[in-house]
Design a protein around this nucleic acid. Structure first.
Lengths: 206, 206, 206, 206
DNA sequence: ATTTAAACGAGACGGTACGTCGCGTCTTTGT
DNA sequence: ACAAAGACGCGACGTACCGTCTCGTTTAAAT
């Protein structure tokens, strides 16, 4: 397969690639986003600038790939009860947003504000949708199991927990402890949790 | 009063200042954050670069002040019923985050990622806390009126609505219509709304 | 006299003037010509820039006046014998060109190369002709006394000694000791010294 | 040979270098020394500023090389008689100092006054000594031929003619015609010309 | 084993913007 | 009234990176 590979000559050097991604993450974590330069990465990776430009169209794309390559991919194993599943999902979100890979978000902004829509789109697909897929399945299973009302607004629920964690942790810089995440989960579930037994329940979305 | 003013020598020129802030916003909106340069602003404002550097320590600070000077300061006048108050508050948040001033957020990031903690702190105080104050009062009045349970987690409520709007609108780029905001408000109020009459109500935060 | 002085209002402040000239020379000697700035002089003199600009049209003019005000004005009093008079005159030239006031010459150049002909002209008049006058008189008296041939080229003689000292001392940076100046004087006088007695002497300028 | 060339990577671009030197001379001659700016040269040469700064440490060094690269290197063909050789040598000096390349001297001053001793030293070696070598040989051959007294002070002679031309032409701005140079040569030779035949001659340096 | 073309390191290139410095002018305030 | 202080528009400074472009060198597939 891959008739491309049949050409003569050197192909891309995996050592160099790996060194570039490593160097990118190092610079990112040590010096911050604003200090990332292609020249600096090239020097640290012991690589020519050409090699970087050959394989990545822009600084944003390089940083994106570097982060993507190293970040906690995602969700987690399995379940039992909806509330604790949600709690664990939120922990992962929390790690991805405020852990050592917090810089993911810069991408959204670098992309957004630089009006580089391709990059923005691929960020949304690669990072956000990827992770939402899992949440969606989780909630759908909960509906199937009868733990969640069938008219629960799944998108809203996911926006709420991801957005709240992002905003509080990264934007406001406020602490997020387990009490907070538990209260958050309860709020998310508050109006959409399926009524137990004959209990009349809350009036939810009409 | 103002013993500062007694010093001899020239003071800052209000015309120049205003021209700089205007030019900053123009460039920001026309070309995007990535295209903002001090030289460009100076040229557009008909001002020397020196004048900008004299009064603002960094690009971030300039953009911050420019945005702050023009943004919808705040919430709104009055009340009536809690749910509609909240709705109107969220509309303002929405405008501030996704309207023509959406770039506010870049500040959080420019600051965050550049590791310029002073800037980050002043962003948090000037933008976030300023706006949260209003929300807090709103909710406290609702508690006083008996519309809200006295143990409602006000911070959580505000993080939820601000974060959700930010995340959905700006990060995910998904539409936010009035149905969405209404459902969001209901979720926020879901578990903390005070029980009406003799109805036993939902079991909220223990 | 000086009806100018009779105008109403404050006239120039002699203390400030003197402080400015002093500061100019200090900066000149301590830091060199390239480091002279109006702002630096004003600060050191404890004076506003305005005051400097009010009285001097340019940096060159200020430096010129500062140097002129302090430099060995000139030649010296008396005489006796032509050769030793010349020697003493050359010593003064030497001091003016290579002593602490060596920077005079920068003026000629700053002026010349900046194509500021007014400044150049006034430099030539104030510095050069001023000093040449003395030399000229010296030589003319020597002719009158019969020590010098009446057809001696006085301009040439002066150009030779001034130029040689300037070139060797300042441009080439070679040492000028008393042996050198004595040999120089002999060369200058060589062909134009009046024959002693009936000795036929050298054929001078035809 | 030239093992330097074996290094990897780009080498300096001769076209750019040449364009820079040309542009430097153009600006120098058209606008004068004071108007020389690196930016102006770069723009005129169609070159980035970086390229200039990469290869020259300072404006002085660039101007120095530009002038050196284009100036009449030197002396002249041959001889016959001492007096006319000297005359021709002085013409060259004259051309170098007061011709279109007169700006050479600014170097001495830029260097001197900026206290940049490296530049001053290299100016002295590249411009002055280079040219003096020829004069020295000329005079030494004249001694060997018996045209000049063996105790003639060669250094003094050269200082006299170079200094006089520099001072009169460039500093004083006085005309230098062929009569002047002839009288100058006679003065230089006056006391050191070897006596012809039995003529007793002048008492020279004891 | 030899050929050969791609990818490589190095780094020079034309540029843009940086943040600083000094210019000469203008304005405000105090004496 | 003048002078100090100093803000202003301007323009050049020298630096850092940008993204593009040669340069030889290295290397691995195709012969």
């Amino acid at each position: 397969m891959s008739e491309e590979r049949l050409k003569r000559g050197a192909r891309r050097d995996p050592k160099a690639h790996s060194a570039i991604l490593d160097a990118t993450l190092e610079v990112l974590h040590e010096l911050g986003y604003g200090a990332v330069t292609i020249e600096g990465i090239a020097a640290r990776a012991g690589v020519g600038k050409t090699t970087i430009y050959r394989w990545w169209p822009s600084k944003g794309a390089l940083i994106g790939e570097a982060l993507a390559s190293r970040l906690s991919k995602g969700p987690e194993p399995e379940t039992g009860d909806l509330e604790s599943d949600l709690l664990r999902t939120i922990e992962v979100t929390l790690t991805n947003y405020t852990g050592p890979g917090a810089e993911i978000l810069l991408l959204a902004f670098a992309a957004h504000l630089d009006r580089d829509d391709d990059l923005l789109d691929s960020f949304r697909e690669d990072f956000l949708e990827e992770r939402r897929r899992h949440g969606r399945e989780l909630l759908e299973r909960a509906i199937a199991r009868g733990e969640l009302r069938s008219d629960a607004d799944i998108d809203l629920m996911m926006d709420v927990w991801a957005g709240t964690v992002l905003y509080r942790g990264l934007i406001r810089g406020a602490p997020i402890d387990s009490g907070f995440t538990r209260r958050l989960v309860r709020m998310v579930l508050g109006v959409v949790r399926a009524p137990v037994a004959e209990e009349p329940g809350v009036r939810a979305l009409e």
